[in-house]
């Protein structure tokens, strides 16, 4: 029964969403299940917060290595929660000026907006910036000319990269008109529009078929492994 009920919920909700995409009369059911999902996801936040608190508190109480970071995590979590729920520093909504809590929690000037703007954004931007270095190291490894395929990849990447810079125009801009197709900027566009698009579309078609088959397996109850391997038995 523990497996049967989730499976039937998935089947009914899945078919409702599928039909609502094609039959307007069933749109209501699709929208309703979408709203139910949002409510369930919101309730699950409590479980997530509980997991976060439990694991970090245990780490602090055991004095595990790096327990200080757990303390900082919990402090920041609690502070953000307090500031957000309490709407600290939120200017009242113009329509309800007499009610101090009528404004949006992330309105300009609120403590929540301040934490977001001066705390979260710089930290996440820093993590995102690391990507540049990772791209460089991955490209260095991927473009090593180890075999014929790697040499082809390296050559193609070289043409595309050069073709998208001023250097490409400078290097091959003098080619006569009858050989303009060989100019790096034109070659780059040709590679991206023909070879890259063809390969990308092949992958996307495969993904679409895979999504359809996977959805069908779940809707027909053939694949129950999303409930765990035991679900198949």
């Amino acid at each position: 029964m523990r497996r049967l009920i989730p499976m039937w919920i998935a089947i009914i909700a899945g078919f409702a969403m599928l039909f609502s995409a094609f039959f307007p009369v069933t749109e209501f059911f699709g929208e309703t299940f979408g709203e139910i999902f949002s409510v369930v996801a919101a309730i699950a936040y409590v479980l997530g917060a509980g997991s976060l608190a439990k694991i970090n508190l245990a780490k602090i109480s055991r004095r595990d290595q790096g327990w200080g970071y757990s303390a900082i995590t919990l402090f920041c979590f609690a502070a953000t929660l307090f500031v957000g729920l309490g709407k600290i520093g939120v200017p009242p909504n113009a329509q309800f000026a007499a009610l101090p809590w009528s404004g949006e929690k992330n309105a300009e000037g609120s403590a929540f907006a301040w934490i977001y703007e001066y705390g979260l954004v710089p930290i996440t931007s820093t993590m995102f910036a690391l990507l540049a270095f990772y791209v460089a190291s991955a490209a260095f490894r991927a473009f090593r000319a180890k075999n014929l395929e790697a040499i082809l990849l390296l050559s193609t990447a070289f043409i595309v990269l050069l073709g998208r810079t001023f250097a490409g125009v400078v290097l091959t801009g003098w080619f006569p008109d009858w050989a303009s197709g060989l100019r790096l900027e034109n070659l780059s566009v040709y590679i991206m529009q023909v070879f890259n698009t063809a390969g990308n579309r092949a992958i996307i078609i495969g993904i679409a078929l895979g999504v359809t088959a996977t959805s069908l397996r779940i809707l027909l109850g053939v694949d129950r492994s999303w409930m765990g391997s035991g679900g198949n038995s």
Binding site: I203, I204, G206, I207, V222, D223, S225, N232
Partner: peptide, 22 residues
């Protein structure tokens, strides 16, 4: 790559139903 990702569960389970869907 592509549909291989969605084939993973069926491929790993080796069940006839799932292999049929593949």
């Amino acid at each position: 790559i592509g549909e291989e990702f969605f084939a993973a569960s069926a491929y790993l389970s080796k069940e006839p139903d799932q292999m049929g869907s593949l």
